[in-house]
């Protein structure tokens, strides 16, 4: 394909930097919030009492402007509200 050629030109050092930024933001969050895994499983318990979103919910930690954020995304669709 024509676009494969363009893709290949993307420099691997830049890709490495981007991948590290993403994974380290996640790992640093985990290190700062050691209770995160327990919190996550409790949240799933509570949320699945009211919704069917167990497999689709997304709970993550991020760090912005000097604060940690716990981000919870619960997709609610018509047929999964209990």
């Amino acid at each position: 394909m024509l676009f494969d050629f363009l893709k290949r030109k993307r420099k691997s050092a830049k890709l490495a930097t981007e991948r590290l930024h993403v994974i380290l933001a996640h790992e640093r969050g985990m290190a700062r919030l050691p209770f995160f895994d327990d919190l996550k499983s409790d949240l799933i318990k509570v949320l699945s009492k009211y919704t069917d979103t167990k497999d689709t919910l997304n709970i993550s930690v991020s760090h912005r402007d000097g604060y940690d954020f716990i981000e919870i995304n619960v997709p609610i669709t018509g047929n999964n509200s209990k």
């Binding site: 420099k11 691997s12 050092a13 830049k14 490495a16 930097t17 590290l20 380290l24």
Partner: peptide, 15 residues
Amino acid sequence: VKKGEMMSQDDILQI
């Protein structure tokens, strides 16, 4: 580093 195939020290420091 010049060819963009290896992270530079600046990339690493920023991370």
